[in-house]
Write a protein that binds this DNA or RNA. Structure first.
Lengths: 349, 349
DNA sequence: CTGAAAGCGCTAACAA
DNA sequence: TTGTTAGCGCTTTCAG
């Protein structure tokens, strides 16, 4: 057993007000009566150490309140056990599931997630990436595929696996897990047109992926011989208020509207709210489609038709790809993964 | 000027497929024609190096694409420039502003934020704290004041500044920035009672702070001589659907309801939605109060009366306290900060 | 103002 | 199975 006397000796005579030196492998080794290396092995490769030794080390760890210094671990072993993720906005519910799944999957593999927020746009992303590279992340997960030249160069050159997510591109930096926003825009347009709606509109927040959906929506409308959809730009993050104002704006137009695609469920909820307020029938007079299938979509009144994306799967797959690359083959799976999407038809259309 | 030849020599003859050795201070030093120490100083204490030298170093840094290894920096200097924050749920919009402000304030001071999610409850928090201590964070910010015995011991013993937030307690681990949830519950109860409402109810998600508000609400109702409020428990995270179901449940009760306090704005929006659906007048027959003043509260129909908390201020103050403690005095400001709250009166009451 | 030596805490590589 | 040696990349400390 670990000697409590030994433990006490380590902290004896120190003024408690001063930030005391943290215990190290050597302290643990001394208490356990083994070498530092054995402590390290007992903790990191338990199967390579006999049970008896392992137990003595574990007892010593608890007795000394030892917490391994991961800075030193990472420096020496060149593996920080840290994976960095960059999302446009931390508060955005759209990416919440992805982050959750990412963290959970990484955790199960012994990695920690380091989160950064780029703030929609390559401006903040560069500085963030610099910081993350400095921490020597073992892998990087990005939301989005639009990065500055410098960012792409840094990502490609730093030698760690990179996964871009939530979008597709013919020229990914490395690995890719996402879906086609153009396909979403086209599919929603066809969906609304299929219901006989002809005066379509798009209410869109200010982000590149939403713009891609809008563009494809408009192109598809043209293909189907519909009049050009009305486009209402909204700020990001999108709010319920933006949705209400957008509907008012659309109603003030001479042509009228009978189908609206919103770039977020919150915008769509705003449209529903304003429609109810003005006594406009949904889906009777106007059909409304959201994006994201947030928790409130199914319970809205009327229940909101929306585009569902499996955000959790994106996070999980991204994590697995990073881990796989770190652990194993040098370039195993450069095949982009398209997780697709689903139009969940509810009462609002 | 830095010689491009020198730079090339460093990467010559390396198989590009292999993860190449990252450039170090020594590489930069060689290119700049100075010692490693001078490079370090030029980067970390620019004012202590003459401009000419500094410029040469900077040129060499750019030429070599040098990114400092923060693992090594942290190990040697015992300052990781990392502040850890633990929030109950990353996706929760309630804490989004706090996290945002925290990150921004820390960034301005040259610190990075490391985010972790405890998942409402001390279970996950312990493991998370262990991980964060391992990374040798220079400071720790926690949402909440309920921690396991082990967590409190670790936090108190690790020698770094700790700030608990979003609540008050007579026995904080170290520093404290929050407000009284009991006061919120009492104030909302008086507010509703002040409107002549007597059949009150609370719809509450499953978290400790909400429970504190509920309890104070009930106690205040008793003080005011009102009948005991109906209590509806909801899951966390709270959703619009939970709010709708809660109202249905309350309406099925024999006593009836004329005032509802919801533990989140999303629950309140659900109550409003169900009320509108059933043709129940708000605020006429039922008054509804939310919590959080989310972006949709002001634009809901009717506009939602809710409790506003300055989440950004909490984040900012927490960051400033951590930074101040790291930089300066050993124990400067143990005075808890109460940021208070505000009942924002809108149409729903 | 600049540099040389030493070592932060840990683990890779080798040896016993 | 265990231990020894060395060094990851940086900055503290002290000397020039």
């Amino acid at each position: 057993m670990a000697s409590q006397q030994e433990v006490n000796r380590l902290t004896d005579g120190m003024p408690t007000a001063v930030r005391q030196r943290a215990t190290t492998v050597l302290d643990v080794a001394r208490v356990a009566g083994v070498s530092a290396m054995t402590v390290s092995r007992a903790l990191n490769q338990p199967q390579r150490v006999p049970t008896a030794t392992r137990l003595r080390v574990q007892a010593a760890v608890e007795a000394t309140h030892y917490v391994p210094n991961l800075l030193a671990c990472g420096l020496r072993s060149r593996r920080s056990r840290l994976v960095a993720a960059v999302v446009p906005a931390l508060g955005s519910p759209v990416f919440a599931e992805t982050v959750q799944a990412l963290a959970a999957t990484l955790d199960a593999a012994g990695y920690h997630l380091m989160l950064g927020q780029s703030g929609y746009g390559p401006a903040g992303e560069d500085a963030l990436l610099q910081a993350l590279m400095g921490r020597r992340a073992d892998g990087i997960v990005l939301v989005g595929v639009d990065h500055s030249r410098q960012a792409r160069r840094q990502l490609a050159g730093c030698g760690v696996p990179v996964v871009e997510t939530w979008d597709l591109t013919p020229a990914p930096v490395d690995m890719l897990v996402g879906f086609s926003h153009a396909d979403v825009g086209a599919a929603v347009c066809r969906f609304l047109a299929g219901q006989g709606r002809r005066r379509l509109a798009v209410v869109s927040g200010a982000d590149g992926r939403a713009a891609r959906r809008t563009q494809a929506f408009a192109a598809t409308a043209a293909q189907l011989g519909l009049p050009p959809p009305a486009l209402v730009a909204s700020e990001s993050p999108t709010t319920l208020g933006h949705g209400r104002r957008a509907l008012r704006q659309l109603l003030a137009q001479p042509h009228g509207v009978d189908g609206i695609f919103c770039s977020s469920d919150m915008l769509a909820l705003g449209v529903l709210t304003e429609a109810a307020h003005q006594g406009i029938a949904v889906p009777g007079r106007i059909g409304v489609v959201g994006f994201g299938d947030q928790s409130f979509a199914a319970d809205a009144e009327p229940a909101l038709t929306t585009v569902r994306v499996d955000g959790a799967r994106i996070g999980r797959e991204a994590a697995l790809r990073v881990i796989g690359r770190i652990a194993g083959s040098p370039a195993p799976d450069p095949t982009p993964l398209d997780v697709g999407f689903l139009i969940v038809e509810r009462q609002s259309t």
